[in-house]
Design a binder for these strands. Structure first.
Lengths: 106, 106
DNA sequence: TTTGTGCATTCCTTGACGGGTATATAACTG
DNA sequence: CAGTTATATACCCGTCAAGGAATGCACAAA
């Protein structure tokens, strides 16, 4: 669940697809594999990475392992993003001021 | 500046360090290399990745290439994060309700 | 024009990652 | 128990990314 694991987990497009899929609702491995066009082993491995990053939680239902999104690590990303968001907002403000102060000549 | 390039760029710890460094102020390559404990070529290559992801802009100052953070792509990350943040907030709300409705027995 | 500085690029090697196949494990079914 | 379903793991292989050393290139100073 280290910060690095989180970034690594989300760096892969397939894993982001899985995460997006789980945003809808929890799903068993097979369903995830099919929906993402992955082989079952591949899906299992990606889910393992997501699990180790804390992004996903498993609950067992008979033979199925239902994976659900755990939103907690998202907060970490959000926190990381915070200082940059500040910068971004400052940029927008500056742009806004420039637009305000410029006579409308077009 | 594709979404994938952005994730790939930020997936590397060294590159996140560079980005954090540039949050302070723009810097020439050599300074970045030293601050991050990177060789000059390595720093150049990482900066190239960041540039191609749109995270960094260069301005030339004599022989120096001063790199500055461009916060625009951050907005893309923020947008990506949005639906998960919703989920996260719902979780907090649910927790809050549970705490409210539970008699304080501790 | 020669010399020096700052940076980019190339080549090479190595290690990590992802995909596929085959196999192991666990749980249900009869 | 044997057989089937759902998933995990092991192994192999191809690819790709990162680091280091050496080199190329642009600009500046003398």
């Amino acid at each position: 669940m280290s910060d690095a694991a989180l970034w690594t987990a989300l760096a892969d497009p397939h894993r982001r697809a899985i995460v997006a899929l789980l945003l809808e609702r929890p799903r068993p491995v097979g369903e995830i594999a099919e929906a993402c066009g992955l082989s079952q082993p591949s899906a299992s491995k990606h889910l393992k990475v997501l699990r180790e990053a804390g992004l996903v939680r498993v609950s067992q239902d008979a033979q199925r392992r239902v994976h659900a999104l755990d939103p907690a690590p998202i907060a970490a990303l959000d926190a990381w993003l915070e200082p940059y968001r500040r910068l971004w907002n400052r940029s927008l403000d500056a742009l806004g001021r420039r637009l305000d102060e410029t006579p409308a000549d077009t």
